[in-house]
Simulated assay, not measured.
Amino acid sequence: MSVDKIFPATKAVIVPGNGGGSVEYCNWYGWTRKALNKIPNFQCYLRDMPDPMTARESIWLPFMESELQCDERTVIIGHSSGAAAAMRYAETHKVYAIILVSAYTSDLGDDNERESGYFNRSWQWEKIKSNCKHIIQFGSTDDPFLPWSEQQEVVDKLGAVLHKYQDRGHFQNTQFHELVSAVQDLLQESQ
C-alpha cells in the first residue's frame, strides 16, 4: 500500500500574500475556500494571518503549525509571500502538497521582503521535495512584481508541475478555477 493511500489529503490551507486586509475578501482567497469546501470529506481553511504586512517567517511558520495545523494531510496553497512561507515550511515539515502561486526566491531588493526573513539564507530545495508528495506552481510572465527568472527558478529547483500564463499578472483576480481543478486532481490521485 502506498503512502498516498495511507495519508490522503483531507484539507487545504490558503496562506495569503502580505499586505492585505481581511483575507476572506482579498483576491481569490475567499472564493477558492468556498469552492474547495464543496468537495466531500475535504475542508479548506483561510484565516487572517498575524503580522500581515511584513509576514515574518518567525511568526507565520509557527502559526501555520499550531493554528492552521499544516501536516502530511494538508495541501498548502501559498500566494506570493504565502508561497515563500509554504516553501520554508516544507523544508522542515511533511505536507501532502504545496501549490505555489506567484513564487519567488529573493527579497527583490525590497526592505519589507528582506525583513520577512524568508530570503536570508539558501533554499533547501531537496528537503522541500522530500517533504512534499506533490508540488504545483502557477506563474505568469507578466507579473508586475516578480521577474519570470525567479518563478522559473522555483520550477527548476523543485521540479514543480507548472501552470504558466502570460496574462495573469500577480494572480489578484477574484476567482481561480484552475487552482480548484488542480486541487481536485490531487484528491483524485490520493483515492
Rank of each mutant, 00 (worst) to 15 (best):
S2E: 15
I6C: 07
F7M: 03
P8G: 12
T10H: 06
T10Y: 06
A12N: 09
P16A: 04
G17A: 02
N18L: 07
G19R: 05
S22E: 08
S22R: 13
S22W: 10
S22A: 14
E24I: 07
C26R: 04
N27V: 11
W28C: 11
G30S: 01
T32S: 14
R33T: 12
R33D: 11
K34N: 12
A35W: 10
N37Q: 08
K38P: 04
I39P: 02
I39N: 02
N41C: 06
F42N: 01
F42G: 02
Q43H: 12
Y45H: 14
Y45K: 13
Y45E: 14
R47I: 03
R47A: 06
M49K: 06
M49Y: 02
P50T: 07
M53C: 12
T54H: 09
S58V: 08
S58N: 07
I59M: 11
W60D: 12
P62V: 15
F63D: 09
E65S: 10
E65F: 13
S66Q: 15
Q69K: 11
C70F: 01
C70R: 00
D71Q: 01
D71N: 03
V75W: 00
V75H: 02
I76E: 01
I76H: 00
H79K: 01
H79F: 10
H79D: 02
S81H: 11
S81C: 11
G82A: 09
A85C: 04
H93G: 11
Y96A: 10
I98Y: 03
L100C: 08
L100W: 00
Y104A: 02
G109H: 15
D111Q: 07
N112Q: 14
N112D: 12
R114L: 15
E115W: 03
S116L: 03
G117E: 15
Y118E: 10
F119K: 01
S122G: 14
S122C: 14
W123E: 04
W125L: 00
N131D: 03
C132T: 05
H134D: 15
I135Y: 06
F138K: 04
G139E: 03
G139D: 04
L146Q: 03
P147T: 05
P147H: 06
W148R: 13
S149E: 14
S149W: 04
E153W: 03
E153P: 02
V154A: 09
D156L: 12
A160Q: 05
V161W: 06
L162W: 09
Y165C: 00
R168D: 07
R168Q: 12
R168E: 08
G169V: 08
F171A: 13
Q172K: 13
T174R: 14
H177K: 13
V180D: 00
S181Q: 08
A182M: 03
V183H: 04
Q184I: 07
L186S: 01
L186D: 00
L187S: 11
L187T: 12
S190A: 09
S190E: 14
Q191L: 08
